[in-house]
Design a binder for these strands. Structure first.
Length: 710
DNA sequence: ATAGGGTTAG
């Protein structure tokens, strides 16, 4: 049967050429001619070629029609169709590929190595891959290098490197292709050591120096500064073996230098590059942006135009990120315009970068416009938009969008859940948070760092400390953020001792605290009135961990001292502070002086604030009340006039609470709540209770809150 | 006649 009659030979060679060129229009015309002169179905060779022609050109419908008309299809006919589907690579194609594999076996056509190589290179579905793997094993195609390489590549692409390695180890024959696939699998998982080990093995086992594929793969895994020297050595090897003429190798070297923190080497490599292509430019622009050289990145981006290379979607993503980090919205908008001009308006990655940029630049409505433009946003774009709302403080919008996403049946990922949980934390929306917790379990997301941390924070912030702690204890790996979240949760809910205990436990486990940890620890000391421990933690920051205390830490210290009534000590501490502390320290002292009725010191602190030009209304209100207590009426007037003169006004206070799925909002001075009468009566009752209590002197804040409320 | 690997991105 596989025989090509002499009269078909000229047609055959012309067909092969059309297939190689993927020339569908000419191919169609040629197919028409073959039908007219009766050659189309003269032999299986020609028929298969025609199936292959349509399949390679992506016209699977036509390929299938021709295929269905072949009277006795052989394994090649099926393989052509399968490969066509594989190369389309759409999400639905894997199902089709599996159907075809089944179909051929039903017709008693035995698959061969070509079949499986095609099947494995088609989709990214692991389940399908495993099924087909079993069939390949049974039929005895498993030993083939092509089959093994494409299967291990499938596992790599699905991020299951361990399974890929199993296939790799079990292969009876390996070649450079199998090595390249395996190395790149490790590299993409950032397992540089494993990738380098295999790279070394290539030279022993294959007795070869490798090829351009091996080099690009191993280079792409070198992404941290510690590997810079290794990267340099591999660069030298590439030079020695004459592989620098492959632009992919050069591109990988440029990226390697950027990621390993050597922009200089990257730029040098880039400058010496003979024929820079779009990838080279993108790699360099992105590299500069990621190293924090945003201006250089933007400059290089504009010179690209003059070099006659037009930016790709990759370049845009890189340069838009530079704008986000710079908060350079004007440049960002221009680049957005440029990307529209080049027709990237529907590119998912570009749009995600734009949404991030607008969100970071506080233009959340522009971010939303971009998001709405894409009809089928993928999960990363959904997550960026939701996360954008969260960073801009519009937590309701974040949750609304998340609900819409759920209704559209989009499966969230870890980062989506972490964002919506953060929204729940900020809103203190416990019920919603619990539901989302349920979802994470349903989706099998576990308690890995983004979700686990967000969950324990959410419970802690919503006052459900036990649940927060439960989640925290079940997390297998905790990072500093998880610890901070739990410590702060305990501290904020009045469990200062437990907060400090947890901090000690953290130190014991060898986790290094950061600035935020110390803010939480010091504020716990403040709530507990622990002056000595406060001092010891404050000193520990620099002495033990090399952390220079920031203004927040000074503020906590002032708070500790003044709450404990050590007002003079607090004043001396502020005046000896070596940092540019601004006004907040005096503001804390002033309020403490008011509460402790040390009006002289209060006036001193208040006048400091007046000198520094405070814009906080509370500073003026507090100081004038201090002067009122001292009976200095003219000073009261002066402070009030100053407040007016400087245009300081009071932001109305606002608070809310969620009860039985309803959110109750209160703004200072409003009468809107339907039960406002009952609420006021209850506040009066509580106030009376406080006043009746012995030794219970309400603070100034409490007293003013009371006077506002009733 | 049919097959496998690499470089840039959210």
């Amino acid at each position: 049967m596989p025989w090509l009659p002499p009269q078909s030979r000229p047609f055959f060679s012309e067909l092969v050429e059309l297939i190689q060129k993927r020339n569908l229009p000419k191919g169609k015309a040629f197919h028409g001619r073959l039908i007219r002169n009766g050659q189309a179905s003269s032999c299986l060779y020609i028929a298969n070629c025609i199936v292959n022609l349509y399949a390679k050109c992506g016209d699977l419908v036509k390929a299938r029609i021709v295929f269905d008309r072949i009277p006795c299809r052989d394994v090649v006919s099926w393989n052509c169709l399968i490969n066509g589907c594989s190369q389309l690579g759409s999400s639905s194609s894997l199902g089709v590929v599996m159907e075809l594999l089944k179909g051929m076996m039903v017709e008693n056509v035995l698959p061969n190595a070509h079949t499986f190589a095609g099947v494995f290179s088609g989709g990214l579905d692991v389940t399908g891959g495993r099924q087909a793997q079993a069939v390949a094993f049974k039929i005895g195609c498993f030993g083939d290098v092509f089959v093994g390489s494409s299967l291990l590549n499938l596992y790599c692409k699905s991020s299951i490197v361990s399974d890929a390695r199993k296939v790799f180890d079990e292969m009876s024959e390996r070649n450079l292709v199998s090595f390249a696939a395996m190395i790149s699998g490790y590299a993409s998982q950032r397992l540089a050591k494993e990738a380098l080990d295999l790279f070394g093995l290539v030279r022993i086992e294959e007795d070869e120096s490798g090829n351009e594929f091996i080099f690009t793969s191993v280079l792409s895994g070198l992404t941290v500064p510690e590997l810079l020297d290794t990267g340099k050595q591999i660069h030298c090897l590439a030079l020695k073996y004459g592989l620098l003429c492959f632009s992919a190798v050069g591109n990988a070297i440029v990226t390697m230098y950027s990621k390993c923190g050597s922009s200089d080497n990257a730029l040098q490599m880039f400058t010496l590059f003979d024929d820079k292509n779009s990838i080279t430019w993108s790699a360099m622009v992105t590299g500069l942006a990621q190293s924090g050289d945003f201006e250089k990145a933007l400059k290089l981006f504009s010179s690209m135009h003059f070099a006659g290379i037009s930016p790709s979607e990759f370049t845009f993503v890189g340069v838009i990120n530079a704008c986000s980090d710079l908060s350079a919205i004007e440049e960002g908008k221009q680049i957005h315009g440029y990307s529209l001009k080049l027709g990237f308006e529907s590119q998912m990655y570009v749009m995600t970068a734009l949404v991030d940029m607008y969100a970071k630049c506080s233009s959340i409505s522009d971010a939303r416009k971009g998001f709405d433009y894409l009809l089928e946003p993928d999960i990363v774009l959904w997550t960026s938009m939701i996360g954008g709302y969260v960073t801009n403080g519009d937590n309701e919008a974040a949750l609304n969008l998340y609900c819409r996403m759920q209704m559209e049946g989009i499966m969230p990922n870890e980062l989506t859940m972490a964002s919506v949980l953060k929204a729940c934390s900020s809103l203190a929306a416990l019920e919603q948070g619990k539901q989302i917790h349920g979802r994470t379990i349903k989706y099998g997301l576990g308690l890995e760092i983004p979700v686990g941390s967000a969950l324990s924070t959410m419970y802690a912030k919503c006052g459900s400390l036990e649940d927060g702690n439960k989640v925290f204890r079940r997390m297998v790996t905790k990072d500093i953020i998880s610890w901070n979240a739990m410590i702060s949760g305990l501290s904020h809910n009045g469990h200062g001792n437990e907060a400090l205990q947890l901090f000690e436990e953290m130190l014991y486990e060898g986790t290094k605290p950061d600035y935020i940890t110390f803010v939480n620890v010091l504020s716990a000391c403040s709530h507990m009135g622990l002056v000595d421990r406060g001092w010891s933690y404050f000193n520990m920051m620099f002495d033990k961990f090399g952390l220079v205390p920031k203004v927040e830490h000074y503020a906590c210290m002032v708070d500790i001292l003044s709450r404990a009534g050590k007002l003079k000590e607090a004043k001396e501490f502020i005046e000896s502070a070596t940092i540019d502390h601004g006004m907040c320290l005096w503001r804390i002292l002033l309020s403490a002086c008011r509460n402790y009725r040390d009006f002289e010191l209060g006036a001193y602190a208040g006048e400091k604030l007046m000198e520094l030009g405070s814009q906080e209304s509370s500073a003026y209100v507090l100081l004038s009340s201090v002067y009122a207590s001292l009976g200095r009426k003219e000073d009261v007037e002066r402070v009030r006039r100053l407040m007016k003169l400087r245009g300081v006004s009071k932001e109305p206070g606002c608070s809310w609470i969620e009860l039985k799925s309803r959110v109750h909002v209160f703004v200072v001075g409003d009468e809107l709540h339907p039960q406002i009468g009952d609420i006021r009566a209850e506040i009066r009752r509580l106030w009376k209770h406080i006043m009746d209590e012995e030794d219970c002197l309400p603070t100034f804040e409490l007293a003013s809150a009371y006077s506002f409320a009733v």
